[in-house]
Measured scan of single mutants.
Amino acid sequence: MGFKLLSKLLVYLTASIMAIASPLAFSVDSSGEYPTVSEIPVGEVRLYQIADGVWSHIATQSFDGAVYPSNGLIVRDGDELLLIDTAWGAKNTAALLAEIEKQIGLPVTRAVSTHFHDDRVGGVDVLRAAGVATYASPSTRRLAEVEGNEIPTHSLEGLSSSGDAVRFGPVELFYPGAAHSTDNLIVYVPSASVLYGGCAIYELSRTSAGNVADADLAEWPTSIERIQQHYPEAQFVIPGHGLPGGLDLLKHTTNVVKAHTNRSVVE
């Protein structure tokens, strides 16, 4: 069995187990497998329904001669939608809004960016022009300005110390501490036991640490421990890039980060 097929099978099995364990909360999309990078042309966006009122959005972007996937989250909030992270750029984010209108038909009224990198804030200006209120932590807003990236308009308070959590509509926002970046936030959907790890969490097929220019490698494993301790009931975990899975993604990420750190020390 090929690795790609095995990865998709694991996603399907995880979703099936969740649907059985929580039949009222989960209505997993039966329309197909989780979209992969090879299936999404740059400039297009796919939506994948995880649970009743919960979707991931998947886009792709060219970077350094390669094409990478990027995940975000959409959560229903009454007759409105909360968006977590842009679709990595203005063109993708405009396509995301169009796809949401086509498939869901509810307005996106608020959006949260989970850290300051372009795959999370690139497209904020498109959201703002569409009347979406954009939010991020003060740290993310400051770092985005320093980096020359787009800056969300509103500040999220109460997320300055490791372990801080605040309720934001249908989700809980959690600051686990520094990891992929010093400002990275985690998003949890309690009604569906869905954990969105953003770039602080890796997919299972990833074996290298990737972009760690703004990471705190020493603190990252401790931050992941905080996530595990705060959300032990999480059933569906979405990484910032690639295929979702279960809580095993947290341990896998820790292993990859520690291996990278150990290699760096040896070198």
Rank of each mutant, 00 (worst) to 15 (best):
N184D: 05
D119C: 01
N149C: 06
I100W: 00
A178W: 07
G2T: 07
S7M: 10
I100Q: 02
N71W: 00
D64R: 09
N92L: 01
L9S: 14
P69K: 07
A179R: 04
G78P: 05
M18F: 15
S139Q: 13
S205I: 08
Y135G: 00
R263N: 15
Y12M: 14
S191M: 11
T207C: 06
V146Q: 14
L73T: 01
L24M: 15
A259D: 11
D79T: 09
V194N: 03
R110W: 07
E267I: 07
V124N: 05
S223D: 03
S7G: 08
V45Q: 04
L6F: 09
V54N: 02
D216E: 09
N211K: 09
I40M: 15
L96M: 07
L250A: 02
D85M: 00
E39R: 11
P244F: 05
V54A: 05
A144G: 05
G123P: 04
T36S: 12
E150Y: 03
Q49T: 11
I74V: 09
V28K: 08
V237P: 01
G32W: 10
A178S: 11
V11T: 12
F3T: 10
S62N: 12
P221D: 07
P221Y: 06
H230G: 09
E172H: 04
D52N: 13
I201W: 04
G242P: 03
L82A: 03
E147I: 14
L143F: 10
V212C: 06
V212P: 10
L9R: 15
L10P: 15
D125F: 04
C199G: 03
G72W: 02
L204F: 07
L73F: 04
E172W: 04
A209V: 12
L24A: 11
A95Y: 14
Y175F: 11
P41S: 11
D52L: 10
N184K: 01
S208M: 12
S223F: 05
V75R: 03
G242V: 04
A133K: 15
Y135Q: 00
S113Y: 03
A66V: 11
V11C: 15
S16V: 13
L9Q: 15
D183G: 02
R226D: 04
H252W: 05
A133S: 12
P221L: 12
P107F: 03
P138H: 08
V212I: 10
L81R: 02
E99M: 13
I58M: 08
E157D: 14
T14C: 10
S155N: 14
A15E: 06
G198L: 04
G210P: 05
L173G: 01
S161P: 05
A59S: 15
L204N: 09
A87C: 00
V54S: 04
Y48R: 11
S30Q: 12
V187H: 00
G131Y: 03
D164V: 07
V212N: 12
P69W: 14
E225D: 14
K258M: 13
T109C: 05
A215N: 07
E33N: 10
D77H: 07
V67L: 15
I238C: 02
E99S: 12
L73N: 01
G242C: 05
R120E: 01
R120A: 06
A51E: 09
N71Q: 05
A94M: 15
F63I: 15
V75Q: 02
I238Y: 03
S7A: 10
P107G: 06
G177S: 06
I151R: 06
S27Y: 10
S191H: 15
E157I: 10
H241M: 01
Q228C: 02
A215G: 13
V42S: 12
T60P: 05
V124D: 01
P138T: 08
G163P: 03
G148L: 06
G65A: 10
S161L: 12
E172L: 05
V45W: 03
V189S: 03
A94G: 11
F174G: 01
S30Y: 12
A87I: 01
S27N: 09
W55L: 02
F26C: 11
A87F: 01
R110C: 05
S30L: 11
F168K: 02
A215S: 13
Q229P: 05
A179P: 03
H241L: 02
P232R: 10
H180A: 01
F63D: 09
L47A: 03
V54C: 03
R46V: 09
T134K: 00
Q103Y: 11
Y175I: 00
S70G: 04
D216L: 08
S264G: 12
V237I: 08
T134N: 01
T93M: 01
T14K: 11
L249N: 03
N92V: 01
G198Y: 03
L5S: 15
G131C: 05
L106M: 14
Y175S: 01
Y12P: 06
N92M: 00
Q235F: 07
S139H: 13
I238V: 09
L217T: 10
V112K: 03
G105N: 08
G32Q: 10
V11A: 11
L143P: 04
Y188V: 02
L243Q: 15
A25P: 14
V256G: 01
V37W: 13
E150C: 03
G89D: 02
F168N: 00
L97S: 01
A234C: 01
S56H: 08
H241D: 04
R226C: 02
A129Q: 12
V265L: 12
L243D: 15
W220I: 01
S70L: 03
A136Q: 02
S30F: 14
V166R: 10
P170L: 05
G78V: 09
A200M: 12
A51D: 10
Q103M: 13
V126F: 14
W55H: 04
R46K: 09
G89S: 05
S193N: 13
L47R: 04
Q229G: 11
H230R: 15
E33F: 09
S16Q: 15
V112W: 03
G148F: 06
A165I: 14
G65C: 04
H154K: 08
K258G: 11
E172A: 03
L47G: 03
T207G: 13
P35N: 07
L195H: 05
L97H: 02
S223M: 02
V257Y: 03
P152Q: 00
D214Y: 07
D64I: 08
D248V: 08
V121F: 03
L204S: 10
F26L: 15
V112F: 05
S155G: 12
Y68M: 09
R226L: 09
D214T: 07
T207A: 14
Q49G: 11
L10I: 15
F63A: 09
G148Y: 06
A218V: 13
A209T: 11
R167C: 07
G210S: 05
V108T: 05
K258R: 13
R142W: 09
L13F: 14
A130I: 08
F3I: 15
E267Y: 09
D183Y: 04
P107L: 07
Y48N: 11
V256R: 03
A129N: 15
G198K: 03
G122Y: 08
H154E: 12
G122F: 02
D79P: 09
Y34A: 08
F168W: 09
Y48C: 06
A87W: 00
H115F: 00
N262M: 11
S16Y: 14
E233C: 05
E157Y: 11
L185N: 06
W220P: 03
A179S: 05
D164N: 13
K91V: 15
V112R: 03
L249P: 00
H115E: 00
S113R: 03
V166P: 04
D119T: 01
D214C: 06
H57V: 02
A165T: 12
E145A: 15
F26W: 15
I74T: 06
A66L: 13
P239H: 02
P107Q: 12
V166M: 12
G210T: 04
I50N: 03
F168M: 10
L217K: 05
V265D: 13
L243N: 15
T93Q: 00
A94D: 11
I104R: 00
D52P: 13
P152K: 01
V171T: 05
H252V: 03
E203P: 09
V28F: 06
I224K: 03
S137M: 15
G105V: 07
V75L: 05
P244R: 03
L106Y: 09
L9M: 10
T153F: 11
V146C: 10
G53H: 09
